[in-house]
Design a binder for these strands. Structure first.
Lengths: 246, 246
DNA sequence: CTAATAGTGTCTGTTAGACAATATCTG
DNA sequence: CAGATATTGTCTAACAGACACTATTAG
């Protein structure tokens, strides 16, 4: 950011008065919220309104909105606010995904959105009426989305899959207490391929990210040890990927 | 992006006229440009102007500037433009680093910057007079930077180091032709630790990212095979990290 | 020849992958 | 007991780490 350069290069800059008198892009934040339910990866979407002048009426879109310069201290706070408003939860995991900005992505003018990426446990969601979970089949969503939200979602899915290969991210999709086979199932759903049971267990246990609780899950078979996440909220990075598909 | 929601939630939105009449944050793009020279990792910085109303006068800052809604088709084009203007090169590698936005990072008002991350070969730079390369000692820069550019730079250094552990990114820091020991030296400079020669060679060669040219580098010792990058502009991802520290 | 750096080979430890074996519950 | 799933063990292949060894130039 170099004010003088900017003024020289683009004809924009500070006047004598300190007034920044050139057009500004619209600034928004959107959140890609993933969860697992029904053995599917799901993403939370909202329907666009149909009012006059609204772009992409009635299409599905990522939850998000304009940055409110009075209300939002920073971008992460804005994303957390959107997430809270749409789902009623504060996500155990919220990371920045990237930003998308161009002259053409919003018919109302040059706009840039800051996209975030959240993982929440299945049962944590208390939805507003216009929001709903949409399943992702084979890494793709069936529905067409508003704006460039299809691109943003595709990027989020790719990021999630990539990171699941070598991090503990899926732990944030789990309820408070879960078994190792539960966790493995979630890894397999996200990666869409089976994993080796014993290698999986060795890896997760040696990562020191979960701890057993003094309970077992019972069923019509051998009971399974229940675990919970250790307090550290940071994801764990493994030094190798899972069985990489060639 | 849901216009109705936004209007309800924040008092912002479309009027009957379709007019978006609420305050917009400033939108900028900044570029963290790395290169290697003198056995050091270097970052390209510019000095802030001293004019009236200019924030952080005379401090060093990342090259960047306001998005020009007339000139810039999208954010990446804006970043490429800034890079070109500052160094005269088009980077062989330009990726998005993230975005930083808050009420307080720029004294002129709520602002959000989209940060990019570029790697260029040492000799490719044709600098403008107010730009200069600053060495990074032990992962840190000596100088204090304008705005939150210190944070952005720290994040870029961390991202670079992380990725160098398991990708071919340093290849973009190399001149057109280079030897394997050259490449290893660059890895070692970025990681700030020595690597095993034979493991390094095996890994790079089996990654199928470089190809030999019909020349050798000669010196007062055994000649070294010269290589060049294969055409694919995408970085290669290894399935393991290098000898991870502890 | 020596000095210097390029490049290869050998051994060892770790761990993923495959898959077999055993454990512990319900009914 | 049978059925089902959890958990552990065994064997092998791949590969990084350490480090020794060989190769090829200039002078």
């Amino acid at each position: 950011m170099a004010g003088k350069d900017r003024a020289q290069e683009s004809g924009q800059g500070l006047g004598k008065s300190g007034h920044l008198d050139f057009p500004r892009p619209l600034t928004t934040v959107d959140v890609v919220i993933f969860s697992i339910s029904g053995d599917k990866l799901q993403v939370l979407l909202v329907q666009r309104p149909a009012g006059e002048g609204e772009p992409f009426p009635l299409l599905l879109a990522l939850p998000g909105g304009f940055v409110d310069v009075a209300k939002d201290r920073d971008l992460a706070a804005c994303a957390a606010r959107k997430l809270k408003e749409k789902t009623g939860v504060t996500s155990p995991y919220l990371e920045q995904l990237g930003s998308w900005g161009s002259a053409s992505r919003d018919p109302r003018g040059w706009s840039a959105t800051h996209a975030y990426f959240a993982l929440i446990p299945a049962e944590a969601s208390v939805l507003t009426p216009d929001a709903r979970w949409c399943p992702i089949h084979g890494g793709r969503l069936k529905e067409k989305l508003a704006f460039d939200h299809g691109d943003i979602l595709a990027s989020a899915i790719q990021r999630l899959r990539n990171k699941v290969e070598y991090t503990s991210l899926p732990a944030y999709l789990m309820p408070a207490e879960f078994t190792l086979p539960d966790l493995q199932r979630v890894y397999e759903i996200v990666l869409d391929r089976p994993l080796e049971k014993s290698a999986f267990r060795t890896r997760i246990l040696s990562a020191d990210m979960i701890e057993p609780v003094a309970k077992m899950r019972r069923g019509p078979n051998r009971p399974a040890q229940l675990y919970r996440l250790k307090k550290s909220s940071e994801p764990v990075y493994f030094v190798r990927t899972f069985n990489p598909p060639e």
